[in-house]
Every structure is written in C-alpha cells, then in structure tokens.
Design a protein around this nucleic acid. Structure first.
Length: 210
DNA sequence: CCGGTGATGGACT
DNA sequence: GTCCATCACCGGA
C-alpha cells in the first residue's frame, strides 16, 4: 500500500517554533485540488517567533492579515508578497503566541507532471519548489488556503514522511528579511539538498524615483 | 557561475 | 508614500 496518509496531529505543531521547524524537515506537504494532487517533501523552513520577533509579520500585533497567526497551531498563514507571490506558513505553539514556520523549499514527491505545468519557468525538477513562492505555486496554494486547518484531513495536509536525522540538519540566518543579524539561526534545511533555495542576504531596496 | 533590476499590489505608517 | 519573508531574466566573467 504504501504512503501513510495520516496528517500530523495538532500536538506536533503546538510546540516551540524552532522545534517544530526542525522537525518539519522531511515531512510531506500535500495539496489536493480538482486538477490532482501535488506533494512536496520539505527541505528548508524558517521560524518566526511571534510578536516579540522584529522579523515577523506579527511584530506589530494583531491585524486582519496576521489574525490567523494568533490562533491555534496547525493552520496555514498565507500572505501575498511583492504584488505577485503567495507564501505559506504553518502556525505553531500555543494559541496567542503568533509563532509560525515559513515553508521555503522542498522536493516534489507526488504529482510531478502537474507541478511542471504549474511551474513552466523551472528548468530542472529541483527548481519546482525551490523558494517559498515557487513552493506555493507548485502546490497551488494561494489566498483560498489562508487559514486552512492542516490537521483536519482536508485538502491541505502535512504527512509524516521521513524525519531528517540531526546529522543532516543545517542552521543559518534568515533569507531576505530586513533587520537580519539576529543572533538566533532561524532557518533550517537539509544539508546539501539540491532543492534548498540559494541564500541571499537581505538587499537594501533600491531607491525608486518618482 | 554571479550580480543587478523590473514587475507589481497590498499592508501599514 | 514606503516597504516588502520574491522571482525571472539579462548581461558579464
């Protein structure tokens, strides 16, 4: 038979954000749509530590956009980025803490043909979900998945997959977040995996003329 | 391989 | 008005 289809339980997500981030590596995010299912084995994620974290969208408190992050663990916080892209986080910790893990990259392990159709620009399969907005495009995650409960057996779920051993786990700084230089390595990835996104330091925005 | 840059729209000050 | 938790594409080495 094969692949276990049981979603990870809410208790998995209701822990400290760094612990959840590390344990998400190797897990499988699966999204089933009328077109078919695509699943991605996570290779890179990034932790955001709630209201106290200057890099987090929750830093300025509860707003309509960030409301989901303040809710219970195991729900999807989906946000619109740079006027073009969608990115997805999984809410972690106790209700009210607003911590979450950004899904940054993964390897497509189901629905390869469909993922290729959704990601025409990808030159290699390793690029299909290499980067947070590429991952959501491969999985067809957008506004409608905002707030989705990934522990409820719905179309969007996180399957057990195969956890990554400590020896294969790397840690480092966040990508593209202004106010970097934080002492904590918030990003974690599977060492040497070709689907891990390229590291780029946060670049100062170029001045825009009027 | 690498660095530079335009696209594009919503959230927030 | 300013700031983006980004990506694709281009030109140069």
């Amino acid at each position: 038979m094969g692949t276990p289809v049981t979603a990870l339980p809410r208790e998995f997500f209701a822990r400290g954000v760094l612990e959840v981030a590390r344990d998400l590596l190797g897990r499988v995010v699966r999204h089933e749509t009328p077109e078919g299912a695509v699943a991605v084995r996570l290779t890179e994620v990034e932790a955001y530590a709630g209201e106290a974290d200057p890099g987090s969208h929750a830093f300025r408190g509860r707003t309509p956009r960030t409301e989901v992050m303040f809710g219970p663990a195991g729900h999807a916080y989906v946000y619109f980025s740079y006027g073009m892209h969608w990115c997805v986080n999984l809410v972690t910790g106790r209700e009210g803490t607003a911590s979450a893990v950004l899904l940054r990259a993964g390897e497509v392990v189901e629905g390869l043909e469909l993922a290729r159709e959704r990601r025409r620009a990808a030159r290699r399969d390793a690029d299909l979900a290499r980067g947070p907005a590429r991952l959501t495009q491969a999985l067809a995650i957008a506004r409608e998945q905002g707030g989705a409960d990934v522990c409820a057996g719905g179309p969007l779920s996180v399957l057990a997959g195969e956890p990554v051993p400590d020896a294969a786990v790397s840690w480092g700084p966040r990508v593209g977040v202004a106010g970097a230089g934080a002492p904590t390595p918030w990003r974690t990835w599977t060492t040497g995996d070709p689907t891990v996104s390229a590291y780029r330091a946060a670049v100062p925005r170029r001045p825009r003329r009027s």
